[in-house]
């Protein structure tokens, strides 16, 4: 187990995280969240009238998430516009956020969430979920709790939390592994669990515990960012 993380961090140590609320004046709610060099911004619009009309639900409002990488966020220019990957992540983010929202008070409406990645260094979907959850709170949407999200990776046989791009593509030993998770605030309920690669069953609990630990740190950062916003703004 002499293996070391290329970034020099401990295996249960996340990158430096930062969060800010109220960054987009035209949006009803907005937030930024970063893991090291990964920066995500999220803007929330609505609840507002939903078009096309056939998507309207008279029982509840709906959530519509759009995730995308900005063309300059990666080393090779990313062609702008929806792709297979961004559509999948949009949907997965939507499912990760929906369990905490209560949109029943806004029938026939939509809450639009736009997530853009300013800089990508792995863990973009998790940074996006963190930003979106703060932005939704900032927009005053009724919600049960905040959503915290982090990825757990694996370097050969060692699980490591919040991998950066170099670590995510660690090809030695068992090859590259990435497991993004999202959970509801300070509870034990999970809203997202994906796994790309392999994690043996006996390591799985370790991986979840690592994720849990970082999620509780994220929860504090999110809470603090929201409270700080009101200190300056309102």
């Amino acid at each position: 187990m002499a293996i070391k993380r290329p970034s020099g961090r401990g295996f249960d140590e996340a990158r430096k995280m930062d969060a800010k609320v109220g960054i987009i004046p035209n949006a009803d709610g907005s937030a930024m969240f970063s893991f090291g060099d990964t920066i995500a911004i999220a803007a929330v619009y609505g609840p507002r009238q939903l078009h096309p009309q056939h998507m309207q639900n008279p029982q509840t409002g709906i959530l519509r998430v759009n995730y995308d990488l900005l063309s300059f966020s990666v080393a090779d220019r990313k062609k702008p516009g929806p792709s297979r990957r961004s559509q999948e992540i949009s949907k997965v983010t939507e499912w990760a956020l929906l369990p905490v929202l209560n949109l029943e008070g806004f029938p026939n409406t939509v809450v639009d969430v736009q997530i853009y990645i300013l800089q990508a260094d792995a863990g973009t979907r998790t940074a996006g979920i963190n930003a979106a959850s703060m932005a939704l709170a900032h927009a005053g949407i009724p919600m049960k709790n905040l959503v915290c999200s982090v990825a757990v990776g694996k370097l050969d046989t060692e699980v490591a939390v919040d991998p950066d791009n170099a670590e995510e593509h660690f090809e030695g030993g068992e090859g590259h592994t990435d497991m993004p998770i999202a959970k509801i605030g300070n509870t034990d309920e999970f809203t997202l669990l994906q796994l790309d690669g392999k994690i043996p069953p006996e390591k799985f609990t370790d991986a979840l515990n690592m994720g849990n630990k970082v999620c509780s740190e994220i929860y504090e950062i999110q809470k603090n960012a929201l409270k700080k916003f009101t200190e300056v703004e309102a």
Binding site: G22, D28, G46, P47, A139, G140, T230
Partner: peptide, 19 residues
């Protein structure tokens, strides 16, 4: 998200932002 106010027994949250 908002300002929590305790008025007697009544607890409410006053919005600070949003639509």
């Amino acid at each position: 998200f908002g300002l929590a106010e305790v008025a007697g027994r009544m607890i409410k949250v006053i919005p600070l932002s949003g639509a």
